[in-house]
């Protein structure tokens, strides 16, 4: 699998991470190295093998449909960089 700068730039955009030109070069080199490590796995025949998404093959547990959460808004919002009238503030999205 060959990757180029545009793959790194696309991943960085999707992940909302800014990279300088030098950093893009470094990350491309790292990604190529990591992918060549990962290649070892590609040769394995996994036809008819189910993916194992969780080690215990666990199913989601059910609970009674009751309100269990209590209100911690004030405590949680005290950690926020900017709030107003119980809302989190972000730069203006709609003109």
């Amino acid at each position: 699998m060959s990757v180029d700068r545009s793959d790194v730039e696309k991943a960085a955009h999707l992940a909302r991470i800014g990279l300088s030109s030098t950093e893009t070069d470094h990350h491309l080199q790292d990604l190529q190295q990591i992918l060549s490590l990962i290649e070892q796995m590609q040769a394995i025949d996994t036809n008819n093998i189910e993916p194992l998404f969780s080690p215990l093959d666990a199913i989601q547990p059910m609970r009674k449909d009751q309100v269990t959460e209590t209100d911690h808004r004030e405590r949680f919002q005290s950690l926020a960089p900017a709030t107003d009238k119980k809302h989190y503030l972000v730069p203006k999205v709609i003109e």
Partner: peptide, 23 residues
């Protein structure tokens, strides 16, 4: 994060992520 975003991105998911979960 970049490696993870790459292996999950469109066109690579089956070859990397799904294969890894099968392995």
């Amino acid at each position: 994060i970049l490696t993870g975003t790459f292996v999950l991105s469109s066109g690579y998911y089956d070859a990397y992520y799904l294969q890894a979960q099968k392995v």
